[in-house]
């Protein structure tokens, strides 16, 4: 499985770190900024290439013709849209995902047949998971410098949070519930958002609060008899 990621920002970097753990996966990260490419290369090695992921001639040299998946994750929607279409229509890449920075561009991406993701890492990883079914772990992304992680978790039947709205819940301090994904799609949560079993939550969590949060969304273990 060969994957090209255009854009070496935090999301691209997080994905590459996840994927490079897996056997038989090869990832190339394409980064436009020479400085960023060089510092990424110092950190994660030769999978990083300095170049323009929307340039056809350059994509050819990094093996776009044999790529199984191209993910365009730059902060520039124009570049992402072009990369996605170049990958699909010029190089015939079977699966292409692009990040949409301005949500108003999303209908256009959809109309052009480009699978897009609006949010940051959680949803990106969910998309990748759907593509890579053998990759069962729900990946987390670490924001090391801030001591934070981005986590995704599913609300279980009987969990403490199930059936309650966010306003009434006491989350550990520092926890940010960023996105709640229900049957109708993703929503930015408000105090009135009710968490239901099956809902997926993407949250920014201080490292030491992760266990508490996890306990709140999972079903309690059966009480042991004394």
């Amino acid at each position: 499985m060969y994957i090209i990621v255009s854009g070496g920002g935090n999301v691209g970097y997080g994905i590459a770190l996840e994927l490079q753990q897996l056997p038989d996966y090869e990832v190339t990260i394409v980064e436009l900024s020479a400085n960023r490419a060089s510092s990424l290369r110092d950190e994660i090695g030769e999978m990083v290439v300095h170049g323009d992921g929307s340039e056809i001639a350059f994509l050819e040299t990094v093996g776009a013709s044999r790529a199984d998946l191209v993910i365009a994750l730059t902060a520039d929607d124009g570049a992402n849209l072009v990369t996605a279409q170049v990958a699909r229509h010029w190089f015939k890449v079977p699966r292409v995902i692009a990040r949409v920075n301005d949500p108003r561009n999303e209908p256009l991406f959809r109309k052009l047949g480009v699978d897009s993701i609006v949010s940051a890492s959680g949803a990106v990883m969910a998309q990748i998971e759907a593509t890579l079914p053998e990759h069962t772990l729900i990946p987390l992304m670490a924001l090391e410098s801030a001591g934070l992680q981005i986590v995704t978790m599913r609300v279980q039947e009987g969990a403490e949070v199930a059936g309650r709205n966010l306003r009434d819940l006491q989350f550990p301090s520092g926890v940010l519930i960023t996105i709640v994904i229900g049957p109708d799609g993703a929503e930015t949560p408000s105090g009135d958002t009710v968490l239901r079993p099956g809902h997926e939550i993407i949250a920014v969590v201080p490292k030491d609060a992760e266990d508490t949060l996890r306990a709140m969304v999972t079903a309690p273990l059966p009480e042991e008899d004394d």
């Binding site: 929307s54 520039d76 124009g78 570049a79 849209l81 072009v82 561009n105 209908p107 256009l108 052009l112």
Partner: peptide, 14 residues
């Protein structure tokens, strides 16, 4: 180029 393409596809498709 990329911005021209994005704007044009938007004008045409949307």
């Amino acid at each position: 180029d990329n911005r021209n393409i994005l704007a044009s596809q938007k004008a045409k498709e949307m």
